[in-house]
Design a protein around this nucleic acid. Sequence first.
DNA 1: AAAATTTTTTAGATTTACCTAAAAATAAAA
DNA 2: TTTTATTTTTAGGTAAATCTAAAAAATTTT
Lengths: 220, 220
Amino acid sequence: MQSFTEENYLKVIYHLAEKTNNVQTNAIAEQIQTKPASVTDMIKKLAEKELVDYIKYQGVTLTDKGRHAAVDIVRKHRLWEVFLVDKLNFKWDEVHDVAEELEHIKSVNLIERLDEFLGFPKSDPHGDPIPDKNGRFTKTQFIKLIELKIGDSGTITGVSQHSSAFLKHLEKLGLTLGKQIKISDVTDFDGSVEILIEEKQINISREVAKHILISNNGKN
Amino acid sequence: MQSFTEENYLKVIYHLAEKTNNVQTNAIAEQIQTKPASVTDMIKKLAEKELVDYIKYQGVTLTDKGRHAAVDIVRKHRLWEVFLVDKLNFKWDEVHDVAEELEHIKSVNLIERLDEFLGFPKSDPHGDPIPDKNGRFTKTQFIKLIELKIGDSGTITGVSQHSSAFLKHLEKLGLTLGKQIKISDVTDFDGSVEILIEEKQINISREVAKHILISNNGKN
DNA sequence: AAAATTTTTTAGATTTACCTAAAAATAAAA
DNA sequence: TTTTATTTTTAGGTAAATCTAAAAAATTTT
């Protein structure tokens, strides 16, 4: 059984490992909002417990055991997010911090019944997949909106940024999950993207376009 | 803002204060499952924060601030219990430990929306009253079943023991909240009580009878 | 390949919530 | 009212997770 803190480290390492193979001390420190020295201490502890493989100065990778524990926390986090949005009417930009706390409640029974109560959802309010109780899930094939060309179309199925500010912005623009979009133009000047959504033309910055994930896209 | 541990101390002191005015160090230690020396340490910290009034060797009492914080935790605990039973189909004997964790989630918003989602319940699965968001609640007028005389009747509206073993036992006997009972006999030998419930005669031990709370009772 | 920079680790402290053992205060019994 | 027992506190220590400052390793730049 892991402590609250250990669980947070595992989760952060898991997410960072989606980008790079060996996860660096500094990257973890930044995510956990702590100092690199503290991370080194904790890494040693996790290595001791065989949750990560660790070679000094080389960063860490999760062991099977560690990954399993991490996926379990991700599952809880995402199920709680669904609960908050579907049942308690939270907005998608309001759920993260609360789910961050709820994910550490330890009760297998609780999470299985919650899953059932929610109708075994496959994805959370941000489009991220929810692992089943065996830790299995299929990651949907995404492409970043920024990578689409003029004339391409598709469906908004995810976001790669969960900050409240970003999500509120999308909400205001009507760029929510499930919406159909089509690229009508890309501005030379600032790389901003002109898109057609529900018969309306809107312009979004490059920065925003980078973090919107599209599936079902039809090439022009 | 209080720590997880501080919250537990406040809650325990609050419950112990329902019986005695000045709550003793040893009593707290027993509840928290810790040593009296540790309790003294924590008491000093709580006194420092003006959550309790403390005179050395004289035990503690909650300040208004401390009581407010404690009632808030009790409110959360009981609301989560309702959630677990009403929505996730937990049995009344399964909810305590999980609610013990959930009660420490810090989000005013969460608890207000949960309250609404549950339909602003007035009592939890064990019949205990749920404080409203201002900490107000009315304690129902209870009498212990053991105190009833032959011929007296009433409705089961609460229990004064929350152990899983006790609650499971009641469940098996059909002694659940809302049930109408009538005392048909009291055994001289062991003080056990014969009661009439749903046209059936059953015998319950003195120990059990002590922890069943009856309201609406009609004297013979 | 040496110098400079960045990243990571070590060493030694701090804080929180605990502990044990012994001393001090209070309460109960003789 | 002493003596005895119980309760509570103090003193000093431990483990978990953090910190700062400085040393060591790795990487990048020149």
